[in-house]
Design a binder for these strands. Structure first.
Lengths: 142, 142
DNA sequence: AAATCTGATGCAAAAGCTTCTCATCTATTG
DNA sequence: CAATAGATGAGAAGCTTTTGCATCAGATTT
């Protein structure tokens, strides 16, 4: 399927910048990229694009459900393609490494806790912070 | 017990600004305050203090284990006094309301998940994002 | 296929949060 | 009470993200 359809379905015009961003995210669907990363990677690939456009498009894609935004520690957002299957994250507070996981027991408890606290279960996400044991821990990126 | 001791134990000089900040946090230990909130509240109380000092001191208190910093959605940090008892948070993505909870089942699963992913359990925290049903939801603050 | 219209882009400026610089000041120690 | 090591405040600067605006490009109609 051509990516343009997903963009069109979101009520957005199928433009060059949007296609480039979506394709880049598809090529890196195992990573969590910052707007700045997307910008740099596209520039390095020889594409011409403005950083403001990246921010605008990523937000539009988020609203459209095409991508997910996460605000881990660090004061910036990271984005990943919405691959349909729900998952949570465990983030290393030292080096920023991100691992994904799902846990049925926790999913159940989440529903109960949300209900008990008067929260609507649906648009939810869970992030666990810890410290990884990687020998090269202390850098950054995920 | 005088609060000064806690500050001294942390290897910091017991100064006016530090006392003021710590006492303010103690008076508002049911809230999650931003640096800006602490600043405004102290100014309104007639105290003279600089915003840079608030940021510095809060970070020092965090390192010393006196306060906890949380990076919920929104792109800024909130702080609360470390009251000793561990708890997690559920945050409304619409209005920013924050509720605290603890769940033994989830605590157990956290340990297992951290272990399975090669993360050290210890310095950890868990944040659940949802949407609350408050009738006056859509404002901000927590 | 040209004209038209609506929306998208890029740049630069600006906003919001946080950190840094540095001169001055103050808590602690001898 | 002098000396010293550390703390403070004000403003500048840094970093991420948003916004204003003139230009440009899809989409639609003729």
């Amino acid at each position: 399927m051509s990516e343009g359809e997903e963009i069109r379905k979101a009520g957005l015009k199928v433009t060059g910048p949007r296609m480039k961003i979506l394709m880049l995210l598809e090529k890196n669907d195992n990573q969590h990229l910052r707007a700045e990363d997307v910008y740099r990677m596209l520039l390095e690939a020889g594409e011409e694009i403005g950083l403001a456009t990246i921010y605008r498009v990523l937000t539009q894609f988020e609203v459209a459900g095409l991508v997910e935004r996460h605000n881990f520690e660090g004061g910036y957002s990271v984005f990943e393609l919405n691959r349909g299957h729900h998952h949570d994250h465990i983030v290393c507070v030292s080096c920023g490494k991100v691992e994904e996981f799902t846990d049925d027991t926790i999913e159940e408890r989440q529903k109960a806790i949300a209900r008990e606290n008067g929260f609507e279960f649906g648009d939810h996400s869970l992030t666990l912070y810890g410290r990884c044991r990687d020998k090269n821990c202390s850098g950054r990126k995920g």
